[in-house]
Amino acid sequence: MIAQNIAFWIIAVAMGFAAIGVVRTRNIVHAALYLVVVLAGVAAQYILLGAEFVAWVQVLIYIGAVVILFLFGIMLTRAPMEGDSDLDNDQRFPAAVAALFLLGVLVVLLLDAFGGTKIKLDAAVLATGKTAVVGDAIFRQYVVPFEVVSMLLLAALVGAVVIARRD
C-alpha cells in the first residue's frame, strides 16, 4: 500500500502542475505538451485503480489521437509557435474565483460524504481488473449504447467534414 501511495502522490503532484500549465502557459504548443502529461498521469491513476484496459485506451486515444488532433488544430489556425501574451481574455479573475469556489464546494462535499471511505484495491482488481470482464459488460449489458455510440461517431465524422469543408 505504501508503494502505491507514494506512486499516487508523485503522479498526482505532476498532474496538478501540468494541469495548471495547460491553462496558464503562454505558448500554445506547450499547452498541448502539458496536456500529454496530464493524460498520461490519468492513465497511470487508472492502472493504480486496476482499470488496465481503460488505461491503455486512454493512452491510445487521448495521447495517440486527440493530442495529435490538437496539434493539427494549432497548425491549421496558424497560432504563433513562440510565446504569446494574448492567450487569455479579460475575465481571468472572475473565472479563477468561480473555479476556486467550485473546487471549494466540491472538496467540502467530498470530505463530508466520503471522509473515511477506503478502496480495497486487491478485491477491486480481482473483480473488475480483467479486460474480459469489461468486454463482457460492453457486449452484453451495454450492447445497445455501444451501437448508439458507434452511430454517434459516424455522425460526428460526417458533421466535422461538413462543418470544416471549404465551399
Binding site: N89, Q91, P94, A98, F101, L102, V105, V108, L109
Partner: peptide, 20 residues
C-alpha cells in the same frame, strides 16, 4: 460564449453550496 459559461458555472457553484 465564455461569459455565459462563467455565469452558468458560478450558478452551479452557488446552487451546490446551497445544497450542501
Amino acid at each position: 460564449l465564455q461569459w455565459y459559461a462563467l455565469v452558468s458555472f458560478a450558478a452551479i457553484g452557488v446552487f451546490s453550496l446551497a445544497l450542501v
